[in-house]
Computed example of a mutant assay.
Amino acid sequence: MNTAKKIVLAEDNSIFSLLLKFKLEKEGYKLLIAVNGKEAIELIEEHNPDMILTDIMMPFVSGLEVINHVRNKLSSSTPIVVFSSAGQEEMILNAFNLGATDFMNKPFTPNELIMRTKRLFC
């Protein structure tokens, strides 16, 4: 039996989260939603997801801290796609230096995210 790939989504915009959840679940993925980086780390540790999607700018713990935790504390190579509306080059480079797999500027379309997700699971 083919089980759905688990994705942790860390996004503090609830409307955007619900849109992504709807689109990704329609494609057969199981989404676990965190509204901040602290919740994301808890979900990651509990569920060992196949992919992590995280905004950079979030309350309590940033997306950069999530990447750092996954790569250094958990020693995980789980694909991490980071997104941000900030678009600051330094922040993007920091994300990649910490171990992000991909970066998307907000706003982006759910279909673009689905294509990138499928590509990472190939």
Score class of each variant (00 low, 15 high):
1 M>H: 08
1 M>I: 11
2 N>W: 06
2 N>G: 01
2 N>H: 09
4 A>H: 13
4 A>G: 15
6 K>C: 04
7 I>G: 13
11 E>S: 10
14 S>I: 15
14 S>C: 10
15 I>F: 04
16 F>I: 11
17 S>I: 04
17 S>L: 07
19 L>Q: 12
19 L>A: 13
20 L>G: 03
21 K>G: 01
22 F>S: 12
23 K>Y: 03
24 L>F: 06
26 K>V: 05
27 E>H: 00
27 E>N: 04
28 G>Q: 00
28 G>F: 00
29 Y>W: 07
29 Y>I: 01
30 K>N: 13
31 L>C: 12
32 L>N: 00
32 L>Y: 05
34 A>W: 00
35 V>M: 15
37 G>I: 06
38 K>F: 08
38 K>H: 15
40 A>I: 13
43 L>P: 05
43 L>K: 11
45 E>C: 11
45 E>H: 06
46 E>Q: 10
46 E>D: 10
48 N>D: 07
49 P>Q: 03
50 D>C: 07
50 D>I: 04
52 I>W: 01
53 L>A: 02
53 L>H: 02
55 D>Y: 10
56 I>L: 14
56 I>T: 09
56 I>Y: 08
57 M>Q: 07
57 M>C: 06
57 M>F: 12
58 M>T: 02
61 V>C: 01
61 V>S: 08
61 V>P: 00
63 G>D: 02
63 G>T: 01
64 L>M: 06
65 E>I: 05
66 V>F: 00
67 I>T: 05
68 N>G: 03
70 V>F: 03
72 N>S: 14
72 N>W: 06
72 N>A: 12
73 K>W: 03
76 S>W: 08
76 S>C: 05
76 S>F: 03
77 S>N: 15
77 S>G: 03
77 S>I: 15
80 I>W: 10
81 V>L: 09
81 V>G: 08
82 V>A: 09
85 S>I: 10
85 S>N: 12
85 S>C: 09
86 A>Y: 09
86 A>Q: 14
87 G>W: 00
88 Q>C: 11
88 Q>I: 08
89 E>P: 00
89 E>S: 01
90 E>M: 01
91 M>P: 00
91 M>H: 04
91 M>R: 14
91 M>F: 10
91 M>W: 06
92 I>R: 09
95 A>H: 11
98 L>Y: 13
98 L>C: 05
98 L>H: 04
98 L>Q: 01
99 G>F: 02
99 G>V: 02
101 T>Y: 10
102 D>W: 04
103 F>H: 08
104 M>N: 10
104 M>K: 05
104 M>A: 08
105 N>W: 06
106 K>V: 10
107 P>V: 07
107 P>E: 13
108 F>L: 09
109 T>E: 07
109 T>S: 12
109 T>G: 12
110 P>L: 05
111 N>S: 12
111 N>M: 13
112 E>M: 02
113 L>S: 08
114 I>M: 06
115 M>W: 10
115 M>H: 14
115 M>R: 15
117 T>D: 02
117 T>L: 07
117 T>A: 03
119 R>H: 13
120 L>A: 15
120 L>Q: 15
121 F>G: 08
